[in-house]
Design a protein around this nucleic acid. Sequence first.
DNA 1: CTTTGGCATTTTGTATTCAGAATGCATAGT
DNA 2: ACTATGCATTCTGAATACAAAATGCCAAAG
Lengths: 214, 214
Amino acid sequence: MAIERRPLREQIRDELMERLTRGEFAAGTDVNEAVLAAELGVSRTPLREALITLAGEGVLESSQGRGFRFAPVSRKEFRELVAIVAALESLALESSDPVHLRKIAPELLRMAQGFPDAVAEHATVDRRDDEWHGLLLSGCPNERLLDLLAGVKAGMRRYENLVVAEDEPVARESEEHCEIARRLLDEDLTGAIEALRANWVGGMERMLAHIPAD
Amino acid sequence: MAIERRPLREQIRDELMERLTRGEFAAGTDVNEAVLAAELGVSRTPLREALITLAGEGVLESSQGRGFRFAPVSRKEFRELVAIVAALESLALESSDPVHLRKIAPELLRMAQGFPDAVAEHATVDRRDDEWHGLLLSGCPNERLLDLLAGVKAGMRRYENLVVAEDEPVARESEEHCEIARRLLDEDLTGAIEALRANWVGGMERMLAHIPAD
DNA sequence: CTTTGGCATTTTGTATTCAGAATGCATAGT
DNA sequence: ACTATGCATTCTGAATACAAAATGCCAAAG
């Protein structure tokens, strides 16, 4: 049994991300440190440390004397984030061991085909999507790159709960993942990267419809 | 007169980066919060906030109960960082307005040719290099990308002072910058991006010689 | 001579306190 | 009626205080 011994600031950060993903915090609203700290049962000090971390990831903004607020969402920023993630994941794929990619391709294919029709809860879909991309990048030796990606994706999490129930895109997403996996099976890395980019761009466009105009 | 009103944590962060760039902190050594806070004339609270920010950028590492230490350098990490920066700057260039790029190309060329032979101080060279890349990316509308780049570059600053005096690379760097500028003048964006990548990779290889083996 | 246990010291992690800035409201003046 | 000024309140930013974990040292046992 591994005893959990992590700094409070990290646990708090995770808890806040959890709540953010559940849509508990509205974009643009202020954080009241005292209230939130009391709610979490911790003091303001580690909470503030967590807030600073999240601000570094773009989840929060801060201004002198007015504290932290949840960063507002915008179509522009979402497009920016997608472009960044697409580029970083491409790089990750590019620097992965082709042999390893080939090896995980069948599993990627299976996962993508796994639940094509299931009208799953939105959160479930996102979790599966994360897992899939996680496996895709599992062979990337560039640790800094993976860290960076994790941070940027954290900044994107705010956009996830904007999308309401919807099944067509899920099927589409599934098909795109299959396409990527097939390219990897064929050892067509360039094609896989291209398909990955298309996957992000496509997902973005589907999402954009749900984001209010700037 | 603009009165300086920034949180202490930011000022501290900048000061620490300044000192780091001057080589005052050895990689791998522990940070003693009380000592450093006293030295800076602040309390531990904003200092820790700055340390947490820097840890998020990869400049510092932290572990439970043992506090912060300056992240050790390694050839592997340096290669990782260069790959990331090259990819991100490429993306930045790609998403910049071609017209704007064309407009700044002459200035870029001038800057690159500016001091080709001057045997300048190492810090001066780095500052000029930063300025050049700053201008190069000045037309990038992706703010999140620029923020991200700034953070990753902060993480690379530790490697700068490892290089000792040397003039050949400076000339080489200058030539590569000219090449990029010329491509932009010709409105050859693809070529410019390629040259930019080559610039980073080349610079990396020159640097690698000075980094101790992992 | 090596190793282990415990104690003292140092340093981090967290809580609490204090000071100062921002916000909102009420009131007085035009 | 509207604006401006002063005051009270609320909240953040920073400092200090406290608790707990880690480190190092010394002594005693094997």
